[in-house]
Structures are given as C-alpha cells and as structure tokens.
C-alpha cells in the first residue's frame, strides 16, 4: 500500500515554492512570484498556508525604503519535502 502524498505539498504552486526554497538560504516574494508566474494574491495565500504548517518561515522587512518579504524553508519543511520526494519515487516505480 502506497503512502499518500503530503496534500500540502501536492499542489503546483506550493510545491514550486518549496522547490525554490530547498536550494537556497532565503528568497524574497518578488523572486518567487517571478519564478512561479503566480499572482501576488494567490502566492500570498499559499505562502500563508505553508507558514501555518510550519514548512516555511516568513520575515517582513525593508530593503531601503521598499517593503520586502523573505521566505526560508524550516527543518520540518525540509523533512516534509524529502518525504514527499521519497513517496513520489515509490509512485513512479509502479
């Protein structure tokens, strides 16, 4: 019996966000929006969901006079991603 894929990560935009953050120390909102091609509103909602799940942490600050939101993956986010990839491998072996 195959394990179910983490529903929080098994969504196109949330998976894209976590995939970006897995390889970097931090990335800002503008960068993630550009890379994923998502709208600001939708991206905010998905970031909020990942933050509430404890997968990412969000820091709001300023770069000069411009507001800047920075996202970082947490330890549990990293573990959840690794588990998601492992489960995905099982599915692909079928």
């Amino acid at each position: 019996m195959l394990k179910p894929l983490d529903p929080l990560l098994h969504s196109e935009l949330r998976l894209a966000i976590v995939s970006i953050l897995i390889g970097v120390e931090e990335a800002d909102f503008v960068y993630i929006r550009t890379e994923t091609g998502a709208t600001a509103g939708n991206l905010s909602v998905q970031i909020d969901k990942l933050q509430k799940a404890g997968y990412i942490e969000v820091e709001k600050g300023f770069r000069g006079k411009m507001p800047r939101t920075v996202c970082r993956i947490t330890h549990s986010g990293r573990e959840a991603f690794a588990q998601y990839v492992e489960t995905l491998k099982e599915y692909l072996k079928m």
Partner: peptide
C-alpha cells in the same frame, strides 16, 4: 487557481 490544478507524479518531478 494555480493552486487547484491537478498534479500527477510526473508533473511534480517536472516542477521540482
């Protein structure tokens, strides 16, 4: 929305 699109395993790997 972007979030609600159905994902299959191959698409997941592609995104990652």
């Amino acid at each position: 929305t972007h979030d609600e699109k159905q994902l299959d395993e191959h698409r997941s790997i592609e995104i990652i």
